[in-house]
Amino acid sequence: MKAAVLSAADAVEFPTAERCHITEWSNTDADPVMSIARARVEPGVTTRWHRVVGTVERYVILEGRGRVEAGELPPREVGPGDVVLIPAGCPQRIANTGQSDLTFLAICTPRFRPGLYEDLEADSTR
């Protein structure tokens, strides 16, 4: 890896089928050990049940209120400053329980790649 500055001005937010909006702040072949994305969930929205194979995730809650469900962890309310640790392959979803956007960083190791994402609602009634 070489020293670099990645500009937020170059990042573009996009909607996902998971029901959230993602802005990739750092996700590149030049830094394969980690990725950082800003996720935004609108009020009243719950993301789809999913998991990321072979990738550990950490949600760092920046703004808003939510309820996270991950693996065997009972549903937990989360807010600014909370960090959610999600093991590789762990079923998960997050709901925005507040009146404004829920925003958080999704920090993945190794870096997130779309082929590792598995939607668990396709064959499930969860």
Results as ranks from 00 to 15, higher is better:
A8L: 12
A8F: 15
A8S: 14
A9K: 14
A9P: 01
A9Y: 13
D10L: 12
A11P: 02
V12Y: 05
V12E: 14
V12I: 14
F14C: 11
P15L: 06
T16L: 10
T16F: 07
T16Y: 04
A17Q: 15
A17R: 14
E18F: 11
E18K: 13
E18Y: 08
E18W: 13
C20V: 03
C20F: 09
C20D: 07
C20T: 01
H21I: 10
H21P: 05
I22K: 14
T23D: 03
E24C: 04
E24Y: 09
W25S: 07
W25T: 05
W25F: 15
W25L: 15
S26V: 12
S26R: 13
S26N: 07
N27F: 07
T28M: 12
D29R: 06
A30P: 00
A30C: 03
D31K: 11
D31M: 09
P32R: 05
P32E: 08
P32I: 01
V33E: 13
V33Y: 09
V33I: 03
M34H: 06
M34V: 14
M34L: 12
M34G: 01
S35G: 04
S35K: 00
S35R: 01
S35I: 02
I36P: 00
A37D: 07
A37N: 09
R38K: 13
R38G: 06
R38I: 09
A39I: 09
A39C: 12
A39W: 00
A39V: 10
R40I: 05
R40A: 04
R40V: 10
R40Y: 05
V41N: 00
V41S: 01
V41L: 04
E42M: 09
E42N: 11
P43Q: 10
G44W: 02
G44H: 07
V45E: 04
V45L: 06
V45R: 06
T46N: 06
T46E: 10
T46I: 03
T46F: 03
T47K: 02
T47G: 02
T47N: 03
R48A: 08
R48L: 14
W49D: 03
W49I: 05
R51E: 11
R51F: 11
R51T: 06
V52T: 05
V52A: 01
V52W: 00
V52R: 00
V52E: 00
V52P: 00
G54A: 03
G54P: 02
T55Q: 07
T55C: 05
T55I: 15
T55H: 01
V56N: 06
V56D: 10
V56C: 06
V56R: 10
V56T: 11
